[in-house]
């Protein structure tokens, strides 16, 4: 699905990423976790083809991004960014409709409107549809952009890929879980998601595999049970913790400060 070999990235001789190998499969939900400054967002940016200067070649569905048709690519992959613009003087529905721009020329078709409505329902922003985007709270704006990304990938293409950079920031518990369930459904249909997350317990509960990073390097990349151990986590975060099985779903449960 997506393969990259030995990704390195540096800015003004300051190394941000060093020799990172990434490989994700169809239907996989990969969570990238790690302390601040580990290079998680930079890695996501590189994988999503946002940066020009990078030496490693990234293969998405066996093709480099240069080989992809610019019009075709937005139907196969989408990205949710962390730094969302806070000045978009449009209605919420207009912002979500931007996700459908790759699909229509001037007038949205019926399926575009349907995709927008469905995406707004999934992220629970349907009631805000006619509101001014600028009048929303941070968490609401976040959900509007998630709806936009979902609407973008609402199509018949098989094996799509979505990048999400800290999608759960500012969200309340209900919406955190709701969004993760939506993403889990998405990967359940043979698609792939790569998510940068801060909450290790949510990552343990939802992700198929975990990539733990520190200072631009991969510390561990494996299934949650193998990555979330007391030695690895307390070492990487430099903070004591206890790992025990979650009494409800048997996933690893990390309790910090103990």
């Amino acid at each position: 699905m997506l393969k990259a070999h030995k990704i390195s990235y540096s800015q003004r001789k300051f190394t941000i990423l060093e020799d990172i190998d990434v490989s994700v499969n169809h239907g996989e939900l990969l969570a990238i976790v790690g302390p601040n400054g580990a290079g998680k967002s930079t890695l996501l940016s590189l994988l999503a083809n946002e940066m020009d200067k990078n030496d490693a070649t990234i293969f998405f569905k066996r093709k480099t991004f240069e080989e992809w048709d610019d019009k075709e690519l937005p139907r196969h992959k989408a990205k949710f960014s962390q730094s969302n613009s806070n000045d978009i003087p449009l209605s919420v529905k207009d912002v979500v409709m931007m996700g459908r721009y790759p699909y229509f020329h001037a007038t949205p078709h019926k399926q575009d409107n349907e995709a927008v409505t469905k995406a707004m329902q999934e992220t629970d922003v349907e009631v805000l549809a006619q509101r001014d985007y600028n009048s929303l709270s941070g968490g609401e704006k976040q959900r509007v952009h998630l709806a936009r990304v979902l609407a973008q990938l609402d199509n018949e293409v098989a094996n799509k890929l979505v990048f999400l950079d800290e999608p759960l920031n500012n969200l309340d518990v209900l919406h955190q879980h709701r969004i993760l369930h939506t993403i889990k459904n998405f990967t359940g249909r043979g698609n792939t998601a790569i998510i940068v997350l801060h909450d290790l317990n949510l990552a343990a509960q939802f992700a198929d595999s975990i990539m733990l990073m520190k200072k631009g390097k991969i510390v561990s990349h494996d299934v949650p049970d193998k990555v979330f151990t007391r030695e690895i986590i307390s070492g990487v975060y430099n903070f004591p913790c206890t790992v025990c099985p979650n009494p409800v779903n048997k996933n690893p449960l990390i309790i910090f400060g103990t």
Partner: peptide, 23 residues
């Protein structure tokens, strides 16, 4: 004159506009 959609998308930020296939 047909760049209306593109200019709308650029309000998201240039990178996000590119993800929507806007050159």
């Amino acid at each position: 004159i047909n760049k209306g959609k593109a200019l709308n998308a650029m309000m998201l930020g240039e990178r996000d506009a590119q993800h929507l296939g806007i050159p």
